[in-house]
Write a protein that binds this DNA or RNA. Structure first.
Lengths: 205, 205
DNA sequence: AGACGGACTCGACGCGCTGTCGACTTTTTC
DNA sequence: GAAAAAGTCGACAGCGCGTCGAGTCCGTCT
């Protein structure tokens, strides 16, 4: 065949193998948790020997990192209008959370596995931290704006509150079998966390 | 020495060894995460060989389960007044959370390790689930009472909301280096989740 | 053509940790 | 003081990981 005419350099054999490993990982993850997947299986799926696997990736976790990087962009999808907006803009928040739920639906095992492996695997830990930090700092900025404008009540230091919201999302989605069903409740709860005021309630009498 | 006179049956040699394993586990856990602790170390700490360890426990996780059972009681400490009370009783909630924080301070590594091992280790998973279920159902009952009395606004189905609160606590404490410092913020946030009303806010003008 | 080098492949090895087995010693019991 | 129960251990087998060095394939340069 020799290098195809029109374009120089199609994907080399190695590139295709690397892809095959990634694909196999995705396929396996759809079927079982990360912890139960072995390098043998990954290699077998790509039709190479276990030792050849190491030519492409340093470890199973390195595969996960590669997979994760493919998701980095998607994870903020539709979050902009909410994070940059103002006021208890319920529809914007709902759109943001709906997009997140969709990701958790398709990549739940990957995300759950990554989260579980994060302590004890620096690269994954850093990935998680940087994502979390990005979200937290944007949300914290929003909280500050809202408070300064008198739109939101005082409360926990903005970064702390933002962190709690991020944690709540992660915990909720990680534990959910049906992410989309959580969205409405998450919307309500997050808005309360941000804007909820304890009005003194009418005790009976 | 022979069996001591007054009381029948002091702790047998085996009982003491078992204790020694448990103690070693506690000690090691104070120093490093569960995942980095090996059966060898546990056995060495109790001054027996690795194979003798298996006489006492089936696995490292079985030790964790034993440790966990010792905590089962403490984990509800001081939660009664809050869970059985009524209204946004901030002091009661604070006391409950303060007690929880203290447990996370002393047993954080154990709890974090257990949580990480829960998927993939049925006994630990069950332990976690039963604890969670107990808390969730008591809290959900409280939510129902409050709503029926017109003291709390409507919102997510009580069990779902209670679950979110439980998740939030776990995530927050698991990630914290200083659990006690979280208590005040958690109090604020939980009260908002339960009682927070979105009053329509004065837009400027 | 032929030599070179980089991309790629693999079997064999050593390691660390797990869990089991069977034989042995110690302690308890009657 | 003999039988049973409790406790102890070394040796072994298994699994999954990561490494090493030898070998093949393939395009390039001269």
């Amino acid at each position: 065949m020799s290098p195809p005419p029109g374009r120089r350099r199609g994907p080399s054999k190695g590139d295709r193998r690397e892809q095959a490993i990634l694909d196999t990982a995705r396929t396996l993850l759809a079927r079982k948790p990360l912890a139960e997947i072995t390098i043998d299986e990954l290699a077998a799926g790509a039709e190479i020997s276990r030792s050849s696997f190491y030519f492409y990736f340093d470890s199973k976790l390195a595969v996960v990192v590669a997979l994760l990087h493919g998701l980095a962009g998607e994870l903020d999808a539709d979050a902009g209008p909410w994070l940059d907006g103002t006021g208890p803009d319920e529809p914007a928040l709902r759109r943001s959370l709906t997009a997140l739920a969709a990701i958790w639906r398709t990549h739940g095992r990957l995300l759950a596995g990554a989260l579980a492996a994060a302590p004890g695997c620096p690269p994954i830990g850093e990935w998680r931290n940087s994502l979390r930090a990005a979200h937290v700092s944007r949300l914290a900025a929003r909280i500050e704006r809202e408070r300064a404008a008198g739109l939101a009540p005082d409360g926990p230091e903005p970064h702390v509150l933002a962190g709690m919201i991020d944690d709540l999302r992660t915990a909720a989605f990680a534990g959910a079998t049906d992410p989309e069903r959580l969205v409405d409740d998450l919307v309500t709860v997050e808005l309360r966390m941000l804007y909820g005021d304890l009005r003194v309630l009418h005790s009976p009498g």
